[in-house]
Amino acid sequence: MATFTEKLGNIDRRIIFTVIALSVVIPLAMRFNLPIPITPGPSTDMFDVVEALPAGSMVLLSFDYDPSTMPELQPMAFALTQHLMRKDIKIVSMALWPMGVSLGNEVLTSVSDSLGREEYVDWVNLGYKTGGGVLIVRMGSNIKSVFPEDYDGNSVDDMPIMDHVNKLGDFDMIISLSAGDPGVPAWIMMAGDRYDIPIGGGCTAVSAPQFYPYLGTGQLIGLLGGLKGAADYETLVRIGMENPPPGTAIPGMAAQSVAHLVIMLFIILGNISYLAEKKKKGGVK
């Protein structure tokens, strides 16, 4: 007859699955809300660098993700675009992932409309080209030959925003929102290291730890990791803003926190049962 602690240690994983599902569904359905405390770190570094850019700077924003990582990266795209456009920084956007183009376009158009910015003057979406790192290298020498037309098929030669950019070196900063390969590492290797342009990154929380070494070396100047990074940025952008637009990252954080706590609770329970069992076995010896 198995004791309680034994049963607890070998709990059917389907029970864990059910509890996790409930801990996400309930807070979302009930619309819980929790405040986000901000601590200095890669998110604030990223914010500070963008904040320090003068109006009129050129930023390349690359949407290197697809719908499967939207929950984490789309909120970042919104917060970053809002910050950049509010500061009158010009955005040239593109995508190393085919599905990134339309996701990026959704963000750019909606933020641009809400702030009254003008396509081709304040921002442009160049679209997607295959090639990853190779493509970046080619952009290093000439962007207009890589992207002769934008996403909608208009010639980039006629666009005021493209007057000042011929190659990657003409950008003041490159930001890649990246869900994997090609993404941030490709930008670091093929653009940052080669042409000495500051690279900022946004990534899924899972890949964030592997980018820390790049932060340490300065190859990456700031990093938004996962929904937490997005919520940090969203919070930072909203500081001092009247009637901030509704965010997408902050509400999800509540559900995430609850589920997160539930997992920690499971780990604690697992250890209690493990230690209790060990003690019992030790007693028999």
Binding site: P71, A205, G225, L227, K228, H260
Partner: peptide, 8 residues
């Protein structure tokens, strides 16, 4: 957390 955000 990242994994949970996908489920969210």
């Amino acid at each position: 957390m990242a994994r949970i955000s996908l489920l969210i």
